[in-house]
């Protein structure tokens, strides 16, 4: 059996055995239930009121977008929390020594672990993102444009957070790693919103600040691209949601995020291969 596959499968099994995946899914299901209940009661309120159907649909679309944004945040935070200890923790505890002295290249160890998380996150994002869309459709009869592309972009955002956590894990202790990666995501979050605000104020300095933040960590920009693709054009244009079509990251930003991911993964491999264990 390929050692990369051996390490990937044990990383996946670790998430399952340590109940990380199941706990995250149970918490996620709790979120879906609350979200579903919110949609249900909103529908009940609509039946009692005489709001025009067109307006109802826009409000429900906005609720669905907020639900998906919550899923996006949950997924990124869960990505960081579950993977933050993987490299740095095993180096600190000495667990890695028993693996790294086997006939396995170090890059196999790192990529194997990374692949295990990639598989786990695919399940998580599929369940949470799909569950939220399904709740919107079944309870409120509302659907969004480009759900598959939107879901894949949210998945890409998780992979960015995962890979950044792996890269920092080859350098820093678990705690420092967590602080840095959450800080990076916070920077991207702030930068994204500053860029959004610049659309109202027409401020070029804010745009520059937002773009620079997105180049440092493109995770939030990817979400804004996903939001642009998913929400109905009218809702975006009329600013029914906080994800209005102002200063939308282009498709090139998605390309940049992909390139960014490859570069930081390569850096993680490079440093992990050279550091002392």
């Amino acid at each position: 059996m390929n050692p990369l596959w051996v390490i990937a499968s044990i990383t996946f099994r670790e998430a399952a055995r340590k109940k990380i995946l199941w706990t995250a899914l149970v918490v996620g299901l709790g979120f879906l239930m609350v979200f579903g209940a919110g949609l249900y009661y909103q529908m009940a309120d609509f039946h009692a009121s005489n709001m025009p159907p067109f307006l109802r649909y826009q409000v429900l679309s906005a609720m669905l977008m907020v639900g998906l944004y919550t899923v996006d945040l949950l997924a990124v935070v869960m990505t960081i929390l579950t993977s933050v200890d993987t490299i740095s923790g095993e180096i600190a505890s000495g667990t890695i020594q028993a693996i790294a002295t086997k006939p396995v290249a170090r890059w196999h160890v790192l990529i194997g672990k990374w692949a295990g998380f990639v598989a786990m996150l695919a399940i998580y994002v599929a369940v949470m993102f799909g569950g939220t869309l399904a709740a919107g459709y079944w309870i409120a009869g509302v659907s969004l444009d480009n759900p598959l592309r939107g879901g894949l972009l949210v998945y890409l955002e998780c992979l960015l957070a995962l890979t950044a956590t792996f890269l920092m894990g080859t350098w820093f202790s678990t705690l420092t790693n967590g602080v840095i990666v959450l800080g990076l995501h916070g920077l991207a979050f702030l930068g994204g919103w500053l860029e959004q605000m610049s659309g109202f104020a027409q401020g070029s300095a804010l745009v520059t600040l937002g773009v620079v933040s997105s180049l440092i960590m493109p995770s939030e920009a990817i979400w804004r691209r996903a939001a642009f693709l998913m929400q109905p054009p009218l809702a975006g244009a009329l600013q029914f949601t906080p994800f209005a079509n102002i200063s939308v990251p282009s498709g090139a930003m998605v390309g940049y995020a992909g390139f960014y991911l490859i570069i930081i993964l390569a850096l993680a491999i490079y440093h992990f291969q050279r550091r002392d264990l």
């Binding site: 670790e14 055995r17 667990t95 020594q97 693996i99 086997k102 006939p103």
Partner: peptide, 28 residues
């Protein structure tokens, strides 16, 4: 080459059999 580190530690959730199978697979 075989190696036993000082203060051997490994994934606590593995059983003894699973641990040996994992290391054996890593060795091909």
């Amino acid at each position: 080459v075989g190696f036993l580190p000082e203060d051997f530690r490994f994934y606590q959730w593995l059983t003894a059999t699973e641990l040996l199978e994992f290391h054996g697979r890593l060795c091909g």
